[in-house]
Amino acid sequence: MAKYSEKSQKVVKSAMHRMHEGTLKSGRSGKTVKNPKQAIAIGLSEAREKGAKVPAKKTTAKKSTAKKSTAKKSATKKPAATKSATKKSAAKKSASKKPAMKKVAKKKSAAKKTSSKKSK
């Protein structure tokens, strides 16, 4: 039994032809497709939309196993508390710098006022 139907083969062939002509565009960005593998992927996607017999995408099988592995990884991670502690200390440091800058600005403005009084 064939993996790909004749209809899907024709759609992929037309996608390849459009790539060689320079009229095949990618989805969101609309850039011209120059890679033959990308042209094949676009052709298969178009064939799926038309209802042709095309095997399921390979990424769908990987996604289900990826979800399982990430669940295990997230359960074993514990250093999240240290990240929040560093954020708090960084916030304290930035807060302590701001008043110091204001004091300098006040001193400069006070110096300007005294110099303007002396000149008068």
Rank of each mutant, 00 (worst) to 15 (best):
R48D: 04
I40N: 13
V104E: 07
A91W: 01
K37D: 14
A95K: 00
V54C: 09
I42N: 07
E6Q: 13
S109H: 03
L24A: 05
R28H: 06
A56S: 11
K57Y: 00
S109N: 05
A41C: 01
K98Y: 03
M1A: 10
M1T: 08
K34M: 08
R28S: 12
L24G: 10
H17K: 13
K78W: 07
A61M: 03
K31N: 13
S84E: 13
A71S: 13
M16H: 03
K50C: 02
G30E: 06
S69D: 10
K3L: 12
T59S: 15
P79R: 08
K93C: 02
A15I: 07
H17Y: 07
H17M: 07
K50A: 15
K57W: 00
H17F: 01
R48I: 09
S116C: 01
A39G: 09
A111T: 08
I42F: 09
G51D: 12
E6F: 05
S8G: 10
A90G: 15
K103E: 14
K50S: 13
K57M: 00
H20E: 14
K3G: 12
K77Q: 10
V54E: 06
K50Q: 15
K37T: 13
M101A: 13
A71E: 15
K73R: 14
K102Y: 03
V11R: 06
M16V: 05
K50L: 15
P36L: 01
K34F: 03
A41F: 08
K25T: 09
R48G: 02
T82H: 11
S26F: 00
G51N: 09
K77I: 08
A52D: 15
A41R: 11
A111P: 02
Q38F: 05
S74E: 14
K92L: 06
A66Q: 14
K97D: 12
A39E: 04
A110G: 01
A47C: 11
S8W: 04
K13W: 03
T65L: 11
K78T: 14
K112F: 01
A81E: 13
A15E: 05
H17N: 06
M19Y: 05
P79F: 01
K98P: 00
A75Y: 00
K117D: 06
A90H: 08
K108I: 02
K62H: 11
K93D: 09
A15M: 10
R28G: 14
T114P: 00
K106E: 07
V11E: 08
K31R: 14
E49A: 15
A111S: 12
K3Y: 04
T82Y: 01
P99K: 12
P79C: 00
P36Y: 06
S64V: 12
K78N: 10
G51K: 09
K97G: 12
K63E: 09
A75N: 08
V11H: 01
S115W: 07
A85E: 10
K92H: 00
K118H: 05
T86C: 00
Q9V: 05
K97H: 12
R18E: 11
E21P: 00
V12K: 03
S116W: 01
A71L: 10
G30K: 07
S119D: 13
K62Y: 11
T32I: 12
V33F: 02
A75E: 14
K102L: 11
S26R: 07
A105C: 00
S69T: 15
N35Q: 05
K108T: 09
M16F: 07
S115F: 08
R18G: 01
P99D: 06
M16N: 07
